[in-house]
Structure formats: structure tokens, C-alpha cells
């Protein structure tokens, strides 16, 4: 029976991911090179933002992955709690540092872009603030994984933290919105107006095409990194188990 749960077997997971990993990794490299080169060298300047518009090809995909990584960790945590598949818990652990790096990239590129455009590196704007809070959640999550010695205990604790954290992250998002209306422009990439052809507000086609390639590249990069890091976590777990058995005699 072909079922997705087959891949919950660590051996099967390593075998399969070994086979697909090169494809995904090279796909990520190709998409990122094409998207970034296209965006960097072959798109015009924006009439208001000048050449800083080119930062969008990193900023937007990184911000997207920062949120999606947490969503993936939430799903993996739920799967671990319900079905007790170790691969799922380890995948959540593997994704956290990648998500944290994406958050830092989104914050850093945003700050560098904000300096000439808004005249400040940092503003306590809802989106910026939410990302800072998201980064703190990533740090806490990873720190808890590192602090608990027993693997299953750590998986349970972090899974529950991930669920509770998700609720509070959403609450914070709305609280921060309430607290300050903000400077950041709305999400304009996927806005309905983009399809209707409202050229004032949306990201115009010249910028959108390479941006979508970059987004695909970031998604593939994330998947490749998570697969690789999950393999590493599976091996680390197996090694701890072997060493423990050896010590028992």
C-alpha cells in the first residue's frame, strides 16, 4: 500500500530522501541563480525606489519562508503528537534553525532597505515587530530542544511549545497591529488587484516573474535543507541509541 506514512520509517526516509535530495538541491541552486541573476541584472529600476527594488528578490521569499517554516514545524509537531513518528519530530527540529535564518534575512534586508527608503533602520512597525517576535519563538524552540536530554521528552515538550507558541504568535500579530498601524506596505505580490491589472499597487510583471522564480528557489532550498538536516538528526539519534546500548554492556 503506497501511503505517506511509509516515510515515517527512518531507514525508508533516509533511502528516499537520499534519492530526491540531489534533484531538489540542484533545482534550488538553479532557481536561485536564475531568479537572482534575472532580478539583479535584467530588471529595470523602480521609478520611486531606484535600484533598492532589487532587494525584493531576497526579502519577500525569505519572509515567506520564515512564516512557512513555522507552519511546517506546527504540522510536523501535530503529526508527532498524534501518530508518534520520530521522523516528524526530528523534521520539526531540523527546520527551526533554517526558519530562524530566514527570519534574520528578512529582518536584515528589510532594515538595509528601510534605511534609505523610510529613513530608518528599524521602526516598531507591526510587520517588523511580528518578525522579531517570531525570531524569539525560533530561539526559544531551539533552546528547549537543546536543553532536554531525553529525545522523546524533548520532542513532546517542543511540540506542545510549538502549538502554544503558534497561538501566541498569532495573538501577538494582532496585538501588534492594534498597537501601531505601521509603515510597512501591505503584501502586494499576491493581491487580488494584481490579477485585475491594477498597476498602481501591485508588483508589476517586470518584477514579478523573477520574484516567483526566487520564491520557488527558496522553497526548494528550504526543502533540501530540511531533508538533509532531518537525515543528520536521524543519524544523531541512532548514534546516541547505539552508544547508550554499548554503555549498558
Amino acid at each position: 500500500m503506497a501511503s505517506i506514512w511509509r516515510y515515517a520509517n527512518p531507514k525508508k526516509f533516509i533511502e528516499t530522501s537520499d534519492r530526491v535530495l540531489p534533484v531538489i538541491a540542484w533545482g534550488a541552486v538553479a532557481a536561485l541563480v536564475v531568479g537572482l541573476v534575472w532580478g539583479f541584472f535584467f530588471t529595470p529600476e523602480d521609478y520611486r525606489q531606484g535600484s533598492t527594488v532589487k532587494i525584493i528578490y531576497i526579502h519577500v521569499p525569505a519572509a515567506m519562508m520564515a512564516i512557512n517554516a513555522w507552519a511546517m514545524m506546527l504540522v510536523a509537531s501535530l503529526i508527532w503528537l498524534v501518530r508518534r513518528h520520530h521522523v516528524s519530530a526530528l523534521a520539526a527540529r531540523a527546520a527551526a534553525p533554517v526558519g530562524a535564518v530566514m527570519t534574520v534575512i528578512a529582518l536584515a534586508t528589510g532594515a538595509i532597505w528601510g534605511q534609505p527608503m523610510w529613513g530608518t533602520w528599524w521602526a516598531w512597525d507591526p510587520r517588523l515587530t511580528s518578525f522579531l517576535i517570531l525570531f524569539l519563538f525560533y530561539l526559544g524552540y531551539s533552546a528547549l530542544w537543546a536543553a532536554v536530554e531525553d529525545d522523546d521528552t524533548a520532542a513532546d515538550l517542543t511540540a506542545i511549545l510549538c502549538i502554544v507558541g503558534s497561538v501566541f504568535a498569532l495573538l501577538s500579530r494582532y496585538a501588534v497591529n492594534f498597537w501601531n498601524q505601521g509603515l510597512h506596505q501591505g503584501a502586494s505580490v499576491m493581491r487580488a488587484g494584481a490579477i485585475a491589472g491594477d498597476t498602481q499597487e501591485r508588483v508589476s510583471n517586470v518584477f514579478a516573474a523573477p520574484l516567483f522564480v526566487c520564491m520557488a528557489g527558496f522553497v526548494l532550498l528550504f526543502v533540501a535543507l530540511v531533508l538533509l538536516r532531518t537525515q543528520t538528526e536521524i543519524r544523531a539519534r541512532r548514534m546516541r541509541a547505539l552508544l547508550a546500548r554499548e554503555r549498558m554492556g
Binding site: I133, L161, V164, G165, F168, S172, Y174, A175, V176, W179
Partner: peptide
């Protein structure tokens, strides 16, 4: 570690 975990959860209440 507990401070690191709890403080982000305090954000909405504080705001």
C-alpha cells in the same frame, strides 16, 4: 531558558 520561553508569550498581554 524559562525566561526565554515565557517572555515572547507575554507579548500580547503586555501590549
Amino acid at each position: 531558558l524559562m525566561s526565554l520561553l515565557v517572555l515572547p508569550l507575554y507579548v500580547p498581554t503586555l501590549i
